[in-house]
Design a protein around this nucleic acid. Structure first.
Lengths: 342, 342
DNA sequence: TTTTAGCACTCTCAATAGTTCAGTGCTAAT
DNA sequence: ATTAGCACTGAACTATTGAGAGTGCTAAAA
């Protein structure tokens, strides 16, 4: 439906618009990309492309600008061609810095987003695994104050989380150890969501039962898991504010609200984390209205089948996709490798 | 140096400018605040106030706008008069929600900033204590993977932090327990900075010594404390973007950079955390250039002499100080009370 | 001596109009 | 099928103008 020549013109327009943030005219295309065609011919082709919904004009006498569909075509041919941006030296350098932090997942992810945004000049995002996919490796209970217990949760993904739990009555460290042993034997190896379900079941049983230690154990377990959730890390808002795409105050507000909410972005990343490889969402392809004006390039990090996090970049639809894809792909691969061999 | 009438006019101008974001003219002042004086007289007074540096004109034929010095005078008389904004119902409501999180300091501070920004419509900030003021209560070591140990640090302030440490050789849980006991007997009750210093001393000793357990202990301790630092929580950028004060793209960029840096704000809060009660920094009173256009209202939370955190609000110099002071003061007091009785 | 009325003056802001310019669509010639 | 030519369009920039808000100053009033 799109002949070779039209494809080339379309890609040229998109590429040029990505490189220079002004609507691109037929003259520019004819000149800068040696098609051996006159501006008039290019004009006709561009008019066709507009009719097909790949390009639009901001106003009658301006050049053309890609629509989301136009970007999509461009990105697809980019991926098909496999020609991304290359800049290996810088990446390796930065990854070295990251490696030093691998033992502290929070700091690690925080630093990852900073690296992503620094490299791309867009917004870097990273998310730790969703609780329903996180498997409990071990739980330890440490007596804290008289009626308080610190629960330390170790997960297979390498996360360590602690949570203080208030109890009705004082419990000795010895009892806590017994409770921990019980919980470990019972729940180790299960995902947090599975545990939550089983805990609910046990609780109804526990009521009729009178082993107070077990009922305490169940209660502790429930509380320990309660607030556990995937954390979202975001950085680089100031980077995108430098772009000419963000001179519109309204757009900036929307973006900063979306970032502070976290909710929208978490939902989005959650959805994308199931897939293999780099995922690209362009503008309105996104189902969330708040993100309609932005593009998202993400990749899940998996250890075998188990997702251990998501990293990505958020930027304007007029994004340097080649670079973004390259950075995200490599970062995800690096993290995966690093976490697996840990 | 400033007669009663001038003071009143000055405060009226500032108040009016805070309420309505336009330069205020003599007519407005005469009308809205019943001085029983004609605009002409007010005009003369305002001209004097300008000469003394309390007011300026954006341009010749505009009304007047407070300078930072003008705000300072206004705030001082506000504080002296003790007349802040009152709205007890809402606060209590919100504090209830916060209380549920008090066992998780990170979540608690995060939620505190959200509450602060929601109440004030400015930026909420909260910082956990500086490491040099944080005292170690207890350290626990849990064997993680073969050559890895999870160190769990409990502080007197109620913080719990965990850090994974890689060792050169495998150590049994039993040995870890002995190490922990040693570290606790040695360092419990000291601030992190004191411990750091002592650890450095011990290390030079340990070299000549050959008790490998102790040298291991020292190494673990050093690593455990290494990355420990006060955390800064910020939220509400999207709130201030709605204000008419932030239509200037440059200002927005500056602010968002400052927030992402964290460094500037941490330094600032650090400095202010020594003082008792609510501290107010107006615009250029601040030594950091990046914050020149903003005002900061903060209060440290202390348990006796020991600081346990800082909370505050960042907004435009044209800030509703009465409200901000009231909110910060109450929030700090609430947190202090809550943390102490914990 | 202090306050006020009056008035000329200054500066911004919004609306209007003229000009330039990039880029288009269409038509007719190649 | 391609291209040159040309009229047309709409944005962006540049005056120019008038209205309006607020000032400073002066001279009169209290």
């Amino acid at each position: 439906m799109l002949d070779e020549r039209s494809k080339k013109v379309l890609c040229a327009v998109v590429q040029n618009y990505i490189d220079f943030p002004d609507p691109v005219g037929s003259r520019t295309v004819a000149k800068r990309y040696s098609f051996g065609l006159s501006p008039a011919t290019i004009r006709n082709i561009m008019a066709d492309l507009e009719e097909m919904g790949f390009l639009t004009q901001p106003h009658t006498s301006a050049g053309r600008v890609p629509t989301d569909r136009g970007y999509r075509f461009y990105v697809d041919s980019l991926v098909a061609g496999g020609d991304y941006y290359l800049n290996i030296d810088i990446l390796q350098e930065l990854y070295k810095r990251l490696k030093a932090l691998k033992n502290d997942i929070d700091m690690f992810l925080g630093e990852t987003t900073k690296t992503l945004s620094m490299l791309s000049h867009y917004i870097g995002v990273a998310m730790s695994p969703r609780p329903d996919m996180t498997t409990l490796k071990r739980i330890e209970l440490l007596k804290y104050k008289a009626d308080k217990v610190a629960a330390i949760l170790f997960t297979d993904e390498g996360l360590i989380k602690n949570k203080v739990i208030s109890l009705d009555s004082e419990v000795s460290q010895k009892d806590l150890n017994r409770i921990a042993t019980y919980l470990n034997s019972e729940f180790s190896g299960y995902t947090f969501d599975e545990i939550r379900l089983r805990v609910i079941k046990e609780m109804s049983k526990a009521k009729t039962m009178c082993d107070s230690l077990i009922s305490k154990a169940i209660k502790i377990c429930q509380e320990a898991l309660y607030f556990f959730r995937g954390d979202l890390f975001v950085s680089g808002l100031s980077e995108v504010l430098e772009l000419p795409d963000f001179t519109d105050l309204k757009k900036i507000r929307e973006l900063s609200r979306a970032i502070e909410d976290k909710h929208t972005i978490i939902k989005l990343l959650d959805k994308l984390s199931e897939f293999e490889g780099v995922q690209i969402i362009i503008g309105s392809e996104n189902s969330m209205d708040e993100m309609e004006k932005f593009s998202v390039v993400v990749s899940a990090c998996k250890e075998g089948d188990r997702p251990i996090g998501v990293v990505g970049i958020i930027g304007p639809t007029r994004m340097n996709y080649a670079k973004a894809i390259y950075i995200v792909d490599n970062t995800a691969k690096f993290i995966t490798k690093m976490l697996v061999e840990r």
